[in-house]
Design a protein around this nucleic acid. Structure first.
Lengths: 225, 225
DNA sequence: ACCCCCGATATTGCTGACAATTATGCAACC
DNA sequence: GGTTGCATAATTGTCAGCAATATCGGGGGT
């Protein structure tokens, strides 16, 4: 049995990113270096690298000599993220209406189908993962790497925002609205597609309560498992 | 005489970012950790942190066990960056036409004036710095932090792209086109402003030769001084 | 002359230990 | 009872040294 080298810094970032995007890591909790090092079975140096990148991405906030905490976006930041999403995703669907091919549409419809299954089975973690993944898949389909990376950031931050400010019990981003958007894109109806996307984002944002801040604590090891 | 603690990792990132944006650090050159540590008078660990962040920003490429190099964007990436700039900056000027106030306009006009001075004096480094700064100032004026950060990335990458693929001797991004854009915004003429911006970006992109790749070497210490 | 192999050198990647800073618990005091 | 001050513990920030890996040069073979 050779000793495993452990995950790379990039893989750790990925894992934590996913845990945040899926809301298993709640805003406000501290990410202690030693703890993470033990969980991932790597040295603190690598954890440090990962945390530095995550801070750059806005997912964690590092307070000098205090530690790294999962970010609690302010109301202002929340509105900012949704503002940018409205403009970026509008651009995404416009572009898609011009350039989608059959393979793209197949992937998009497959994804919506998966969402439908997850909703029917009521598996919360899958629902969260897939509904964020839909928007990500749209950006990926455009073919611009920069756009994709930007959307990654936006989706992760949106997850944080939803975790802090969600008002309703039900999870938004249902597959119905997603399906409508896909079909509008399939019909190459840019006007309808952008309109549906705008409506969808408004809908998501409207389910947030942007006045109250909840404080949450959570078990770290379980969230990363 | 107490020992200086040296610049923080963030400050190092800033310094290298600026050196790249101003094209004093050319694409392809290797950033050796020991060398940087000596220049900034800090330990290698802090240099490592800075390089990790710069890699995440796409400005340097880290090859495992080889080192960190200033990125050489591919033709594909170049087109991608300009594609995103067209859409993002269009959104920026649209937004500005709705929300500029007199203080904003004053700052913008001041900036253009500075560009004009630099052009008249023919100080190349100032010209580069200010012409990128204009686009950054536009994004900042919108008031969205996310948008500003995104434009930072785009401008830095654009600088890299220009350094690699610039065809003409003259520096693009002259103050005339910038001034026209500012005045269109001042007149709240969104149609004209977006049109001018699109034209401006097309102009900049058209001065690139997206088929040839030049190899450059450079003196590291001089560039960072 | 060209190519392959191999040792020397340089650079990165990592680990562990140490210093600096902050949070915490406890006792004394107002 | 609440607050202040201090000692302790926990956590982060930093550093120097070591191991691993890639580059470069020379030597030998074909």
């Amino acid at each position: 049995m050779t000793e495993q080298p452990g995950p790379s810094a990039r893989q750790i970032v990925e894992k934590v990113w996913l845990s945040i995007a899926e809301r298993r890591l709640r805003p406000g909790i501290q990410l202690k270096e030693e703890q993470l090092a033990a969980i991932f079975n790597v040295s603190r140096a690598r954890i440090r690298q990962a945390l530095t990148v995550l801070e750059r991405d806005g997912l964690v906030t590092i307070i000098p000599n205090r530690g790294a905490f999962v970010s609690k976006p302010s109301v202002e930041e929340a509105r900012d993220v949704f503002f940018v999403r409205r403009t970026v995703e509008r651009c995404v669907v416009e572009r898609l209406c011009q350039s989608v091919n059959k393979a793209d549409l197949r992937r998009l419809r497959d994804h919506v189908a998966k969402e439908r299954v997850a909703n029917a089975a009521d598996v919360t973690s899958d629902i969260i993962k897939l509904s964020g993944g839909f928007h990500l898949l749209l950006a990926e389909t455009v073919g611009s790497d920069f756009l994709f990376t930007t959307m990654r950031d936006l989706i992760a931050r949106s997850s944080l925002i939803t975790a802090v400010y969600r008002n309703t019990n039900r999870f938004n981003c249902g597959p119905d609205e997603h399906e409508e958007i896909v079909e509008a894109i399939a019909a190459k109806d840019a006007k309808k597609a952008t309109h549906l996307m705008a409506h969808h984002l408004e809908h998501v944002e409207s389910e947030l309560d942007l006045s109250e801040i909840r404080d949450l604590s959570h078990d770290l090891r379980a969230a990363l498992a």
